[in-house]
């Protein structure tokens, strides 16, 4: 068997997170060692429940551990009041979680940070961390297990933006949810691939693509087709001219599978944690004027190839059905 990239998927699962997990689980070049959850799109309790159920759907047997309830310096949010609910639905899966079977798997006894440490220690190969939510767990792992940093091959993350934002004009939601954690991660010295809005807003799932989910994807594809419906509505309200909703969180996974699909440039990235309007901005210097590059920043992607990876993953997962 050819080399498979060992990853730990850290997620506030969410609709697009679920697509990212599908992509990772359905691609033979990725070896998911474990899944850790974090607050973000929804409460960490809900996200953990979602992770277990999506694993059941994808027949993915990997350990799942619950992570941070809140940002390093912030308060725990009340998600029953939180407006974020409306992007991913109240259950975080587009209002379709009830369609998923009860999971057989139980959440791990240890927390996310300890699971990451355990998996990294056990792995023969250096591990890639793939966080697609707030970076709280990853920052905590780096703070608590400094001796394991050398066992990390790099971090391929979804978050930030060189230009613009979505949560605020300069702030992307994952970074905005825990800017201090992001700062710790970006200054860690680890290899970082930042898949921010510059590229992920090009990762659109068109109407035709959505139909294809059902055509090629069997029961899994049908669930994804249903799950994404409300996400489409939100996306259209956001920007009616868009081809479809963005699969933000799949972009770092797609980069791991085939770096040619995601165009990156070496940049210096530093997270602003003090600005009046620029707090949580991933300040991206494409010229690296005063500093050496510390991140590869994604600026573009090949949408057709990117979508095709998802359909291929669906086919692969359905191969025995």
């Amino acid at each position: 068997m050819s080399y498979r990239i060992p990853i730990i998927f850290d997620t506030d699962i969410g609709v697009d997170d679920a697509f990212a997990l599908l992509l990772a689980a359905g691609n033979p070049s990725i070896d998911i060692l474990g899944i850790t959850t974090v607050f973000g799109n929804n409460s960490v309790d809900n996200c953990t429940e979602n992770a277990l159920r999506v694993c059941e759907l994808l027949d993915l047997d990997v350990p799942v551990a619950k992570g941070a309830r809140k940002s390093l310096f912030g308060e725990e949010k009340d998600y029953t009041l939180h407006k974020n609910n409306f992007v991913h639905g109240e259950d975080g899966l587009g209002g379709k979680r009830y369609m998923l079977k009860d999971p057989r798997k139980k959440v791990e006894d240890c927390d996310a940070v300890d699971l990451i440490a355990r998996l990294v220690r056990r792995s023969d190969e250096k591990v890639v961390l793939v966080p697609v939510g707030p970076l709280t767990n990853i920052a905590m792992f780096l703070l608590t297990y400094p001796e394991l940093k050398s066992q990390i091959d790099g971090i391929a993350l979804m978050g930030g933006a060189a230009y613009g934002g979505n949560y605020l004009p300069l702030a992307e939601a994952n970074i905005a949810n825990d800017p201090e954690a992001a700062k710790i991660v970006f200054q860690s010295g680890l290899k970082i691939v930042m898949c921010g809005l510059d590229a992920t807003e090009k990762a659109m799932l068109s109407k035709d693509d959505r139909e294809m989910l059902r055509v090629v994807g069997g029961s899994i594809g049908t669930f994804y087709y249903d799950m994404v419906k409300d996400y489409v509505t939100v996306s259209e309200r956001f920007d009616p001219n868009r081809l479809g909703p963005c699969l933000h969180d799949s972009v770092p996974v797609a980069w791991l599978i085939n770096p040619d699909i995601v165009k990156t440039e070496p940049c210096h990235v530093e997270v602003d944690i003090v600005g009046q309007y620029s707090k949580a901005c991933t300040v991206t210097d494409v010229l690296c004027r005063d500093n050496k590059p510390n991140a590869m920043v994604a600026f573009d992607l090949n949408r057709e190839e990117f979508i095709k990876l998802h359909l291929d993953a669906l086919k692969w997962l359905n191969r025995n059905q």
Partner: peptide, 8 residues
């Protein structure tokens, strides 16, 4: 216009 942050 941002005036507090050094980076921005």
């Amino acid at each position: 216009c941002e005036t507090r942050s050094t980076l921005n």
